[in-house]
Nucleic acid binder design. Structure first.
Length: 276
DNA sequence: CTCAGTGTTCAGTG
DNA sequence: TCACTGAACACTGA
């Protein structure tokens, strides 16, 4: 799930549930991949007793500003997600295949003094939880480019960034040091609505094309965030609803053929009859 | 059984 | 050094 809109939806849910609350307990599964150099025990130690002053996001990274450093920084990877529950709302150990699968993928749990329980799940374990003294000033967050929601680029900056790159425009959009938070489906969606061939070298785009892409990218992100990243509420006209179908016969809602190519190592859905 | 997948990083190349 | 490409990572579901 996790591109910018999903992470922003998670940020808002967490903020709503626990802003101003004190962490009363924290448990991290022993998992090198997820926690890396911060031992799980160190993570729990740093969090318990701390108050959450703010929940912030930039690109696909989300972090909690506590009343004392270090602060936990989260990345959802390919399959990560937060689950917010009241003291008795979530029974991850109850019966049912789905629940036990979810329970198995819990990598981190925190309890708060208002009874809320927050769980970070990630079956595929590409997600990351790290401690940072000053998240904004340190990698990886300090290396991120502009955020299309909270820090959108002015058109001239957008134009400069793209016209300096010879890689396919799709790859440039996915570059987090350029557009933080843009992921595979948002890049495809933006290029589809901009009528632009994703394989084109970014430095061959004309000024009007760049202006269109700039506008469309912001619109997609805003719309997705406005519905809390609930894809069932994305506009029907979006490529999103059709890109996942069987590759051979995928079509847009009005019948245009969807092709799939690999660009920058990622499957790219596009409509050759509409994108030049 | 095989393959693709809403992401990032790192080694290799030019 | 830089820009770019492709593989690796780990696991699930189609």
């Amino acid at each position: 799930m996790p591109e910018l809109p999903e992470v922003e939806a998670a940020r808002r849910a967490i903020e709503r549930a626990v802003n101003g609350c004190v962490i009363t307990a924290a448990r991290a599964a022993p998992d090198r991949l997820v926690f890396d150099e911060s031992a799980p025990s160190a993570l729990a130690r740093a969090l318990v007793g701390r108050r959450v002053l703010d929940v912030r996001r930039r690109g696909k990274y989300l972090w909690w500003c506590l009343d004392r450093a270090p602060h936990p920084v989260f990345h959802l990877g390919m399959s990560g997600g937060f689950h917010v529950g009241g003291a008795d709302a979530v029974h991850l150990r109850s019966s049912g295949a789905r629940d036990s699968r979810t329970a198995r993928s819990v990598r981190f749990t925190a309890r708060f003094d208002n009874g809320t329980v927050l769980r970070f799940t990630d079956p595929r374990r590409f997600g990351r939880i790290r401690l940072r003294e000053a998240p904004m000033e340190e990698p990886p967050i300090s290396t991120l480019g502009w955020d299309p929601l909270s820090d959108p680029p002015a058109l001239p900056a957008f134009r400069r960034a793209l016209s300096a790159r010879s890689a396919p425009v799709k790859s440039v959009l996915l570059d987090q040091s350029v557009a933080a938070g843009v992921g595979n489906w948002i890049a495809d969606e933006a290029l589809y609505h901009a009528g632009m061939d994703p394989r084109r070298a970014a430095d061959t785009l004309t000024a009007p094309e760049l202006a269109t892409l700039h506008r469309v990218l912001r619109r997609i992100v805003h719309r997705a965030v406005a519905v809390d990243a609930d894809s069932t509420r994305f506009p029907r006209s979006w490529l999103f609803h059709h890109r996942w179908g069987r590759r051979s016969d995928a079509r847009t809602s009005d019948g245009a053929a969807i092709e799939h190519v690999i660009i920058g190592g990622r499957t790219t859905a596009w409509v050759p009859s509409r994108q030049r």
